[in-house]
Each structure stands twice: as C-alpha cells, then as structure tokens.
Design a protein around this nucleic acid. Structure first.
Length: 558
DNA sequence: ATAGGGTTAG
C-alpha cells in the first residue's frame, strides 16, 4: 500500500480537471466518448481488470493520455483502493511511457520507468519498445542503443518493432549507413523486416537524394510480396521524377494504379513536373488532364508546375492564362508563380512586363523573395540594364531579402559582360566576406571573366583560395582552357596547361586530352592534330634521359 | 509514426 502512495504521480501532471465530464469532452482526450466511463467501470471489475483493459483498449485502439492516468489515480473511485490503483498503474505504465515518449517529456518518462523498476514491475516487450521509441523521438539514440543491447542480452529479445525503432533513430541522426546495417542484421537474427522497416529506410534514402537505393528497396518489397503502402510509391515515383526519369516514374505509377493503390496530388504533380522538365510539355498537360478526370483537384503547386513548364517552353501566353485562371478560382497565388513568369518574360526579352509583374506582387501582398529578385536582376543584366539591376540588388538588402550566391553570380556575369571587371571582382570579394559560399557555377563565371580580360593567374589564385573553404569546382581548369581556346588565346591556354601540370594539380595525360578537345571545339583542328601526334605534355624532351616533360608551350613555339 | 510535389546563376 505504501509503495503506491509514495510514488503518486507529481501533482503537476494533473491539470485542473475539476470533474470527469470535462475530461471526457476535452478534444485532447478524443471525442466525447464512452471509453472513459468504460475504463472506470473496468477498474471496479477487479477480477480480470488488466486483461479486460487490454482487450478493451486494443479493440478500440485507445491510448491513455498521461493526464487521464494521473486523473484516475487521484480520482475518488480509487481513493482507499490502493491495490486496484497500483494494478492500474502497472497496467498503464506502458501507455504512459508511450505517451511521454511521443510527447518528448523525458523527465516524466524516466519517472515512470524508475517507478516500475522500484516496484518490481518486469518490463514487457512493449514497455521496452515504447521506451526505445520515446528515447529515439527525444534524439537520445545512444541511450536507445544501450536499451537495445540490454534486450539482446536479456530474455526479451528485440522484435521487428525494436529494430524499426533503432533504424528510425539512426536515420534521424543521418546515419543511413548504420541504419542499413541494422536492417541487414535483422535477416541474420531471423527477424523479418516489415513494411515499416522498408519505408523508414526508403524515406532516409530519399531525403539524402539516394534514389537508387530507394528504388532497390522498393523492388525488394515487390519481390517479397510485401504490401506496398502509398507513401512508398510516392518516394519511388518522386525519386525517379527528380532524376529526370519521367517514363520510369510513369511506369511505376501505372503499376500502382493496377494494384488499385490510391494516388495523390503530389504524385501527379511530380510526374507533370518531370515531363515538363524533360521538354515534353504535351505529355505533362495530358497527365494534368488525367489527374482531373481521375478526380483529383490540382492545387497551387500543380498549377505552379504547369505555369513554370509553359514559361520554360516559351508558351508565355498560355502560362499567363493559367495564372489568371488561378487568380479567378481562388488558387493561392504565391511567389513561385511570379518567379516563373518574371523569368519567362525576361528570357523572352519582355523586361518591361517582367518589371510590372514584380511590382504587382507588392499590390497583391505577395512577398518578393530572392527567387523573384534574382530572375528580374538576371533579366535586367541581360538586356543591358545593369545599373537598374544594381539598384535592385541594393533594394534587396534594404528589404531584408537574402542576397544569395545566385544573385552574385548573375551580377558578376553581367558586369564582366559590360567589361566592368573591377566591379565584378569587388562583388566577388563582397560575397566571400559576407560568408556566402561560392559554387562551381559562380567560379565559372568569375574565371571566364578573368580569363577573357587576360588575368589567368588571378583566376588560378582565387581557385586556390576556394579549396580551404571546401569548395572544389568541377572542371575548373577544363572550363578555363576551353574559354581561352575559344577566343584564340592559345598561348595563354598552353601556359595555363603547363602551370597546372607543373604544380601537380592534374595528371598530364588528362590536361592533354582537355587541350586537344578544346582546340577541336574552337575549330583549330590543325593544332589539335599536331598536339595529338606529338609527345607534348606527356613525353620527354630530346635529351631523352632527362626527366622533363615537353611543355605545352612548345606547341606554338614554331 | 510520417511524409511525399513547384521557382533563380553557368
């Protein structure tokens, strides 16, 4: 008797619930329902109380809110009946641990766990699993790992749910590799993975952009004839679509329909977008129609995809029509519509209209985000209005809109085009000083500008500064050699090639190939031929035994 | 138990 009195739940668990009817009608505790009465009734029926509670709760999928448990323990019905209260607490402990786990209330969770231990309540498989789930939800994955090990060493071994919870934990930490290991360990331990195991892993792979693994997990599910939940299809189709494999995505979609699995708006939208991006706008529109005839209502994302697709394929008038349709039909208009349309107009040279749309956003109370600024700035720089673009750049800052690496890239490119090289360089420095990480694209723009103004060395120096920042632009040298060859600065291209090889930055053979291809592409077939049939770049000079490569420079040394 | 679809630079 004293045991229970001593470990009564802390009073703060009991929110001011003055009478039972309030508890019953509180939406937090389900709809006004007979289950609370029923449970209280079961408490009187002390003979088979636990069993009856189990059956009742299981049958109606009832999860006891902690407040309710506390309430019952403090209730008049149990006053003086400590044995019943204690038995009820034993029985409810699992439920409590589960609730506190998913609510992220670690103190309370451990309180219950300790009371169980103190009172000699043996944890069941469910208790362990709920505890694991609580710990994982609270991101205490290492603690969950320890519980897992205790289980493996004890008489209650981990089951599918335990494994799934552990896998979920690793996935939450981004340790997909470890999650995969745990998953494979299941087979060894003769625990059959279920659809939750697969789905958890697929979700993690999808989020990492590893669509291939996502797909092979799906295929494994098919082979094992597991039931495939709709979300698995979403992930597989979404992944294929993002990979540009619209046809494959569509095939999986048809598979899904054949199995009469219910599709959803997101899947249709992903397919429409994928077809639009692969340049097949007609097919995209066909799926759009099919979606509607299948009884799905396109939303602002679907319309956004359609508008963007039409803009990208130069069908601006149709895009504007859809845009107007959305405005008239209460489809939420957002900045994505505007950025697509402004970009479309800008690329078509209709800058005035683009500017008008940009201003319209203010009227409509739509925030001008960095995408919208960027596309308009791009449109302005490309139509010779770089100073207007710079004004917008300033306005962005005043508006508190993030200037991104895209913004800088667009402007740097524009300034170089106008031969305002110093300003371009200054902008690059500003970007670095603001802590914005450059990308391969941004360096490409910078190095092209510098190479064309004869500052190849400067470009190489800046490239060297990028490595410590963890930025390694792909094909940086290749791009620069290409640019130089294209404008006929063969001598500088060769000097650059020698510099790269001398400093051991690249394998001589690769640079040789790059230079040959660059010369060919630039229409200088003769020099390309000459380089190909010589030992320049890889061979040794006429002294033979002296290990010195023949300089690329000698190519033009006639 | 939960998430899954769209916009910008070279």
């Amino acid at each position: 008797m004293w045991v229970f009195t001593a470990s009564l739940p802390p009073p703060e668990w009991v929110q001011p619930v003055s009478d039972l009817s309030e508890l019953i009608t509180d939406p937090k505790y389900l709809q006004p329902s007979p289950w609370v009465h029923q449970i209280l009734k079961l408490l009187d029926n002390s003979g088979n109380m636990e069993h009856n509670l189990d059956v009742y709760c299981h049958k109606f999928l009832i999860r006891l809110p902690p407040n309710f448990v506390a309430f019952v323990l403090h209730s008049d019905q149990l006053r003086g009946q400590f044995d019943v209260a204690l038995r009820f607490f034993y029985w409810a402990a699992n439920s409590l641990i589960r609730s506190f786990g998913s609510l992220g209330m670690v103190e309370e969770l451990l309180w219950v766990w300790r009371r169980m231990k103190e009172n000699g309540i043996e944890p069941s498989l469910y208790t362990y699993n709920f505890l694991m789930n609580g710990l994982v939800n609270l991101m205490f994955v290492e603690s969950a790992e320890q519980v897992f090990e205790v289980m493996q060493g004890g008489k209650i071994g981990p089951d599918v749910v335990t494994y799934n919870t552990m896998i979920k934990g690793y996935c939450k930490l981004g340790k997909t590799q470890k999650a995969m290991q745990k998953f494979r360990e299941m087979e060894v331990r003769n625990v059959e993975p279920d659809k939750v195991s697969y789905l958890t892993l697929m979700q993690a792979c999808y989020s990492e952009g590893d669509f291939d693994s996502c797909l092979s997990l799906y295929q494994e599910m098919v082979e094992k004839e597991l039931e495939i939940p709709p979300h698995a299809y979403s992930l597989v189709i979404g992944g294929l679509c993002k990979d540009g494999k619209s046809v494959e995505g569509y095939a999986v979609f048809e598979n899904m329909m054949r199995k009469s699995c219910k599709a959803n708006v997101a899947i249709y939208t992903a397919l429409i977008d994928s077809y639009a991006k692969s340049g097949n706008m007609e097919e995209a529109l066909r799926i759009f129609d099919r979606m509607k005839s299948d009884g799905f209502e396109p939303d602002e994302v679907t319309f956004g995809v359609i508008v963007n697709g039409l803009c990208k394929s130069g069908r601006l008038e149709e895009a504007m029509e859809y845009f107007e349709f959305c405005k008239l039909n209460n489809v939420a208009i957002n900045a994505v519509f505007y950025s697509s349309l402004i970009d479309g107009l800008g690329k078509a040279g209709r800058v005035d209209e683009a500017e008008k749309l940009f201003e319209e956003m203010v009227e409509k109370g739509c925030t001008q985000d960095s995408y919208c600024y960027n596309v308009l700035i791009d449109a302005l720089t490309k139509s010779g209005k770089i100073d207007e673009a710079l004004v917008l750049f300033k306005r962005m800052e005043d508006d508190g809109c993030d200037q991104t690496v895209y913004t800088y890239t667009i402007l740097i490119s524009g300034l170089f085009r106008e031969h305002r090289n110093e300003e371009a360089l200054k902008l690059w420095d500003t970007m670095i000083n603001k802590g914005i990480t450059p990308t391969a694209a941004s360096f490409r723009v910078l190095s092209t500008g510098l190479c064309l103004s004869g500052k190849v060395v400067r470009a190489c120096m800046i490239l060297d500064e990028l490595a410590p920042m963890g930025v390694i632009p792909e094909n940086a040298f290749e791009d620069m050699i290409n640019v130089l060859c294209k404008v006929g600065r063969i001598e500088q291209a060769c000097k650059l090639a020698d510099g790269i090889v001398d400093r051991g930055r690249e394998i001589p053979g690769r640079i040789r190939t790059v230079l040959i291809n660059a010369l060919r592409k630039a229409g200088n077939a003769d020099l390309a031929m000459k380089l190909m049939h010589s030992k320049i770049g890889i061979g040794y000079d006429r002294m033979g035994s002296i290990k010195r490569r023949v300089k690329f420079r000698s190519l033009i040394d006639n």
